[in-house]
Amino acid sequence: MTISGHSRAFLLMISLVGLAGVTAAQKEDLGVISAAPALRAEGLIIARCSVCHSADLIAQQRLPRARWEATVEKMEHWGAEISNDEADLLVRYLSARYHPGAPDQLPPLDSEFRKAEPLAQEPVAEGPLTGVAARGAGIFEHNCQACHGAMAIGGMGPKLVKTPILKHEELFLEMVLHGRGAMPAWSSVLSPQDIADIHAWLVTR
C-alpha cells in the first residue's frame, strides 16, 4: 500500500470515529486531520508531552476544543517545549481524535502508518552510521535530558553514563527508535543519525 493510500484510510478512520454519537454542539470539535500532521502530532506527544507523563493520560481524555486549548496552553506555561505552530497542531489533532463524542476505546493508530511515514530528518542510511559527539550533546540536551538528567547522570529515567547497552550500538539504536517500558519510541522525532550522535556523545562521558 502506498503512503497516500494509508493517508486516505487514516482520514476515513478519524472521520468515522468522529461520527459516532455526535451532537450538534460537538461538531465543531471534529476537525478532520490527515495522516501526516496526525503523525507529526503523535511525534510531538512522544517528544514533548511524555517527558513529564506517559501518553496514556492524554488518550483517556474526551474534551471539547476549548478545553484542549486550555490544556495545551497550561502545559506550555509549565515549560513544555512547543512552538506556537506545534501547539496549534496539537490542539487540532487532540480535538479531532479525543473529542467528547469519541468512543471509550479508540482504534490504535495503525503502526503501518508509522513505518510508512518518512522520518523528519534524513532517511535510514545503509551501513553503519558514524556518530558525531559534538552534535550528540545538543540533541541529548533538547530531547533526553529532562528524564535522564544533565550530562546523563540520571534523573527520573536511568543514568546513561557507562550503561552496558552503550557497548551494543545496534541495540541502543533499536531501543531509542522503538522505546521500551517507560521509555517512549523516538522514531518519529530522532533519526538514526541523531541517535548515533547521541550514542557517540554518551560513550565519551
Binding site: I45, S50, P184, A185
Partner: peptide, 11 residues
Amino acid sequence: GLGVTFALGHV
C-alpha cells in the same frame, strides 16, 4: 536492554 526490543509505539 540487552534482550529483544519492545513493541512499536508508546503504549
